[in-house]
Design a protein around this nucleic acid. Structure first.
Lengths: 133, 133
DNA sequence: CATTCATGTTTACAAACGTAGTCGATTACG
DNA sequence: CGTAATCGACTACGTTTGTAAACATGAATG
């Protein structure tokens, strides 16, 4: 089925779907967690059954985005990729796909859509000042 | 299956997939185009058959992202949504999903990942100056 | 020890997606 | 006019995703 990791090198960062991402967020916030703990956190607020959460966890393990450690008869789940890396690559994807890889047009859009709060602006100014040195 | 558009209101902006987006880009760059013209532009550079492009166009029409006008025995295809709107909503989605709706952390990530060129920075500064007034 | 509970694994299934072939109608060309 | 090229519509098919049930197994509990 056209695996991309079948060949040599391998662990290409297998895309994480939106539902899977919600599970990742739970694990990034705290880890390790058991499946039912993830269920409590994510399932409840998204209206998912425990079964669904278990499926998502398995898929994340298969994608090597989550790692497990046995703990008696069950597993403890850990994130296997860093949140920062994930955010970085997803942001980059968007910027590449929609803005030709340039961040400025993205900002222009956010600004125009009034998606920038005044705190955002202040923070960005601060960042810019920092970068200047 | 929890369709979100099943209920009353309806024409929620039906997500555009990545492949479909490539077709939209062609139409945004120039329109109207015939199916084969889209094929020439998009298909060639993505390695798609004309059949594939035709499928994508139909799906976009179904999603009301593309509009047609008959021209003899064929159709002329027009974008039915503005590129700016699309960019805006996609950017917003990302910012909401990954950064809690705040643009500053996104900026910080791009900055950290060195995804910002010096022109980007200059442009962003200019934007900020503009917004201040 | 028998039964229930918790847990991971397997299987399911519809919708969306990527990718494309086929078919019927129409047009254009020789 | 007959035939080839064109075009949209319909059909197809494997994969990924969202969502979950069924099952097997081992642990806990009465």
């Amino acid at each position: 089925m056209a695996r991309r990791e079948s060949a040599q090198a391998g662990q290409g960062p297998e895309r994480i779907s939106e539902a899977e991402h919600a599970v990742m967020e739970a694990l990034w916030e705290q880890s390790p967690l058991t499946a039912s703990e993830v269920g409590e956190r994510v399932g409840d607020l998204r209206g998912w059954s425990l079964a669904t959460v278990k499926t998502l966890l398995s898929r994340l393990v298969a994608k090597q985005a989550v790692r497990t450690e046995p703990d008696g008869k069950r597993y403890l789940y850990f994130p296997a990729i860093a949140r920062a890396d994930y955010l970085g690559s997803e942001s980059r994807r968007l910027v590449d796909r929609l803005f030709g890889g340039r961040a400025a047009p993205l900002f222009a859009h956010l600004a125009e859509a009034e998606a920038l709060t005044s705190e955002d602006i202040a923070e960005i100014e601060a960042l810019l000042r920092e970068m200047k040195q």
